[in-house]
């Protein structure tokens, strides 16, 4: 899985490059910005983890890429995928990208599948929508996909309805559906959060092996740092609508650059001896309507100085392929002990 550079591209040009992506919704009185100038990129075949707590904007940014937000959302900035601009792409063109070049799977597989159609019907439809061809060919492809994702007796199961499948099996069906047109990028939005740990590990192993086999890139939206360590090459951490750090995972887990990243890693039970008080980040994530002035993390940051309350830091490249949004990153050395 180790970031295989895109085959054929000398200089690894990113497959997806997101720059200053912002998403705002019109509230009752004012306009609420939920994602604020988010930037991240990933190369072909690579896996990027987008990590954040609820309300950090991680899901909204991934939905914005695919134009899946409600009409009331105002999306600005740029997201180039394979040379095409996704932001404000006409709906008809975007529909061709969605499910074809970029696919998405969601947290709750039951609500993503239509209960009144057979699994085979839904899989075949997804294929014929983009690739056309006969029903028979599409059904054959559907069976092939079910086999690929490890569902026993694919031919028989094609004729069954979603409720006949267990949670883990449904998520496999979703994965089969999302990969049926061989996308270059798969966005997985908390794909294992609703599943039990033993099923989660099956799905993670499946996604890893499929990626090795098919060579697609993945964006993994998650709040679970263990999942990030297990499947990702790069990680983008979001806090209160902003990307606050992007790092390769080995750097991130040993030497995080942002105090929030360090706080998250430190608050895991693995960081302290058993029975001791867990380390924690004081306070809570601010709602979008009450974003602090200056650095958004400053009220909760143990390293905050006066300047942090005044200036909003930019996302800065550190030169070694990492980026961070903290004015003190150079002087802080945040090692994680474990």
């Amino acid at each position: 899985m180790a970031s295989a550079a895109a085959p054929g591209s000398g200089v690894a040009r990113p497959l997806l490059e997101v720059t200053d992506l912002s998403v705002a919704f019109k509230g009752h009185k004012e306009i609420v910005t939920v994602v604020d100038h988010a930037s991240f990129s990933l190369r072909a075949g690579e896996t990027l983890g987008i990590v954040g707590e609820s309300g950090s904007g991680k899901t909204v940014s991934s939905l914005a890429l695919l134009g899946l937000l409600p009409a009331s959302a105002r999306v600005t900035g740029s997201a180039t995928f394979d040379g095409r601009q996704l932001v404000n792409m006409p709906a008809r063109k975007l529909r061709n990208v969605r499910g074809n070049d970029i696919s998405i799977i969601f947290q709750e597989p039951m609500t993503s599948l239509d209960p009144s159609f057979t699994v085979g019907n839904q899989l075949a439809e997804a294929y014929r929508n983009h690739r056309g061809g006969s029903k028979r060919a599409a059904t054959a492809r559907a069976a092939e996909m079910l086999r690929l994702v490890g569902i026993p007796e694919p031919q028989r199961r094609l004729g069954e309805y979603p409720h006949n499948f267990s949670g883990g099996m449904r998520q496999r069906v979703m994965i089969a559906m999302s990969l049926i047109c061989s996308p270059k990028l798969l966005i997985a939005d908390e794909p294992t959060t609703a599943l039990d740990v033993t099923i989660q590990s099956q799905i993670l192993e499946l996604l890893k092996s499929l990626q090795a086999e098919l060579g697609m890139a993945m964006i993994f939206v998650t709040h679970d740092l263990g999942v990030v360590a297990s499947v990702c090459d790069q990680v983008s951490v979001m806090y209160a609508g902003q990307v606050i750090e992007q790092s390769p995972i080995d750097d991130f887990f040993t030497r995080p650059l942002h105090p929030y990243s360090a706080g998250l890693l430190d608050s895991m039970p693995q960081s302290v001896a058993k029975g001791e008080r867990l380390r924690m980040i004081a306070g809570t994530v601010p709602p979008p309507s009450r974003i602090p002035v200056g650095c958004r993390f400053n009220p909760r940051c143990q390293y905050a100085v006066e300047a942090c309350v005044v200036t909003a830091p930019d996302l800065e490249a550190t030169g070694d392929g990492r980026e961070v949004r903290c004015i003190r990153h150079a002087e802080l050395s945040l090692e994680i002990s474990r």
């Binding site: 740990v197 033993t198 989660q200 590990s201 993670l204 679970d224 740092l225 263990g226 999942v227 990030v228 360590a229 297990s230 995972i249 080995d250 887990f253 890693l265 895991m268 693995q270 474990r338």
Partner: peptide, 15 residues
């Protein structure tokens, strides 16, 4: 044993 093994550990090296 399987339950423990299934928990992803927040350490890429271990993983």
């Amino acid at each position: 044993e399987a339950l423990l093994s299934a928990i992803p550990v927040p350490d890429p090296q271990v993983e």
